[in-house]
Nucleic acid binder design. Sequence first.
DNA 1: ATTATTGTTGAACGATTATTCAATAATTGT
DNA 2: ACAATTATTGAATAATCGTTCAACAATAAT
Lengths: 191, 191
Amino acid sequence: MARKKEFDLTEKLAKAKDLFWEKGYHGTSMQDLVDTMQLNPGSIYGTFGDKHTLFMEGLKMYSSQTLADYRAAAARCQTPFNAVKVIIQKAISRSFIEDKACMVVRSTYELAGTDRKAHNLLKKQTVELAELLEDLLKLAQEKNEISRDKDPRMLAFFIISSFAGFWQMQLLFKDKKMQQQLASLLTDSLR
Amino acid sequence: MARKKEFDLTEKLAKAKDLFWEKGYHGTSMQDLVDTMQLNPGSIYGTFGDKHTLFMEGLKMYSSQTLADYRAAAARCQTPFNAVKVIIQKAISRSFIEDKACMVVRSTYELAGTDRKAHNLLKKQTVELAELLEDLLKLAQEKNEISRDKDPRMLAFFIISSFAGFWQMQLLFKDKKMQQQLASLLTDSLR
DNA sequence: ATTATTGTTGAACGATTATTCAATAATTGT
DNA sequence: ACAATTATTGAATAATCGTTCAACAATAAT
């Protein structure tokens, strides 16, 4: 016995996510959100809670979508090392398609030092991606695609930490050739 | 025929720089600056201009100090490749001493996409560090410390882009052992 | 049809934002 | 000593911040 919501909750959250992604947490105002979500303040607060809660939900949506994307790309590959290389390519191509750096890294640099809740979520998401890569690298070692004398867990973190640099270079130079050369330096270093 | 400034301009700018470094551009308010610089709004505007100008000056100070630091560390080294390794170590140790990620990368992620002036400065600073590393890597190749079949310019950018990842990991995990392992993966990949 | 419940609206809230400015103080050449 | 110039002070500005809320609208069980 109540009124129905007039909007698609997921669609509105996606809009908020994209805005936070583009402008950062401190860089987006409630008014910005009202404008781009096309929802009144009351509806936003009634549905998603305050700005910080909304941001966290947006970040969760981004993270799970991104991870699912990487997983899907990996699943289409013949060999585990190929899957790793495809994920690296995806990390680079994403930033050209969207013309934005990864929201997880962006938020880490903005909030990890001061926002405990954000810190925890960002850590969790980063570890999850690391585990995906670690599993693939382990398989690649078992199949002798890459050398066995490097710790796959550490290689996974090395790849992820390279991503942060690729996106930084993307923000500064937008140079496709450079990105490809950096990627090939990275993949070579995994062998 | 005029009144003297009652404060040390450089010292106050350093305080502003540290605050921006810690909280980011959007995360620090003019009131924050008034508090930590211990200067009235009028004095800040009269001396440094508006918030954005002050930020840019702070970023310049940070960049030149950092670069000078790297140069000095490199100068104390016996061989060019040793200098590269020392710079990598310095990049890591700095983040433990200061418990903050590099202000250049932080600002790149926060502002490079939206702030043209900041973008230009950040690009310039990044290129300057790349050139320092490139010179050292060229020398290292000439002295046969490292292989000659990799482009030293691209290796330089690969190192810098690795830094962004190291600092991201630092923000999330603060794990000295991990940082050392990542650093050794990086140095190995340069050979 | 009534009632209870929830959603929507948009104005209004107090707090904070970056910035300005009139009043006052200190300096230096004359 | 005086005049000219610049610095300091801190209150005041208008705009924007995140958030709340009272009025109204829609739904569904009774």
